[in-house]
Design a protein around this nucleic acid. Structure first.
Lengths: 255, 255
DNA sequence: CACATGCGTGCCGCTGAGCGGAACGAACCG
DNA sequence: CGGTTCGTTCCGCTCAGCGGCACGCATGTG
């Protein structure tokens, strides 16, 4: 067969690298340890190939044995820490986030955008805050979160197009599902420098977020404070969020 | 040209998995982004092969572009978080560690043993504590830390033999370098349930640590509090550490 | 300014590491 | 005790990985 055009949608890569990545990504938050057959099922790989790859990954510390099953290796945790450390973001933001939590007694977030979702780099939980589903290293649809909207407001049009093309999936009853409404909010965020989330990511939870901008004025990350809608006044804490975001923008860019 | 600086792992593994692992572990804490040639130099792989692998890893999100160079991908951070989450340790320990920091205003650690070193799973820095070199996801020789000695005291003889065979490398002027002294201390730790570090990991820094034990009485991790030697009385905080360690031991095992 | 050096990258023939269907022993279940 | 599913091994085929070679392009140096 003649391979006509080589448009690689990264979906069907028969390369060993893709297989290893598939195996690593097969682990989900709820899992403890997985067996070879289960991994083969999730990745779609033949069981024999899965078995061989698993053995290699065990030998290299990417996976660890747990009886007959395997789990993600500690080495991956070490590598993962270096991944964000290279951004310098987490270290720079930590003290500011700690101050924000201290002052508000609510939960603060640091997140970046990847594709159509935000990934939480840091989560500092506050004593008065609701038990949020956000998790360090976890994901959430960008359009349904304060940090996500803050980043989208200061990103290129192509980024927003990607998000809209993927569809505004609702995660709460008040999640924005209209692209027109979202565009309107993003414009207002650009005016005020603050993004609000009013029960769009979870019932009874509100949030104020601010973007961390680079020298060109594009968002590289965002921070936020989340709390109960009946206990936290978002307009009261907005100045603190905005101040911290501005300070961090300066710190991070001239690193 | 000397091959001394080379990474230590298995020398004769020409497998693709080993190469990918080598590339991932080529990144060190200080680095920002690395070029293909630098990666080839560190891993010992031919530059062409490095280039091809890097391209594959970029396509799969294991690496990310930064100009001409590459850095560890965000996906690795997500995977790394799942790696420790599967242990459940971090989540279970968090509140207890936070309490310990609150009570002592010093820095608390959660660490596990891997090989001859401890890996820090969590670090909560206290306002009164010295600026320690410990880092989440970072490593330190087990024999030179409180957490390390706490774990070694409740580990099998083979584990200790491995550590001794690797040599008791000094990291401070007071680091234990005699296997006899270390054995003696481990015996005393087993009696008291508490491990002390008296400036063995750093000048002016002391620490009290306690092991987290499984049902069989073997250490799976350890926690510690570190502070200035002239400001913190280790025997005063030892009971708190021991209590938290015992509570956590119970929580973690019957998860 | 010519030269040297090091970078990222593309080309291409060769080969052995990866591949996966088939099969096996050991649980586990109804 | 037949059926299912598990982890694991065997083995011949083949194509993905391999890496020497070379190019274009910045830098730096004599």
């Amino acid at each position: 067969m003649r391979a006509a055009e080589r448009n690689e949608p990264q979906e069907s890569s028969p390369s060993t690298t893709a297989r290893i990545t598939a195996l690593l990504t097969a682990f989900r938050p709820g899992d403890d340890a997985l067996g070879v057959s289960e991994l083969a099922r999730r990745t779609g790989l033949p069981k024999t190939s899965t078995h061989r790859l698993v053995r290699h990954m065990l030998a290299n510390g990417l996976l660890e044995r747990d009886g007959d099953a395997v789990r993600l290796g500690l080495r991956l945790f070490e590598i993962g820490q270096l991944a964000t450390r290279q951004r310098g973001l987490v270290d720079a933001a930590r003290p500011h986030l700690a101050d924000l939590r201290e002052a508000t007694r609510n939960t603060v977030h640091l997140a970046v955008l990847e594709g159509t979702e935000v990934v939480y780099l840091d989560v500092l939980r506050g004593p008065d805050a609701p038990r949020l589903p956000s998790r360090i290293g976890g994901r959430f649809p960008a359009h349904a979160t304060g940090v996500g909207k803050a980043i989208l407001a200061y990103s290129g049009a192509d980024v927003l197009d990607t998000v809209l093309a993927a569809g505004l999936r609702p995660v709460s009853k008040k999640t924005i599902t209209s692209s027109a409404v979202l565009r309107g909010q993003l414009a207002r965020i650009r005016d005020s420098g603050i993004a609000y989330d009013r029960e769009e990511s979870g019932v009874g939870v509100v949030c104020a977020a601010g973007p961390l901008l680079d020298g060109a004025g594009r968002a590289v990350a965002a921070i936020s404070i989340s709390g109960w809608s009946n206990r936290m006044r978002t307009d009261r804490i907005a100045p603190a969020v905005r101040t911290a975001a501005l300070t961090l923008s300066r710190t991070v860019t001239l690193r």
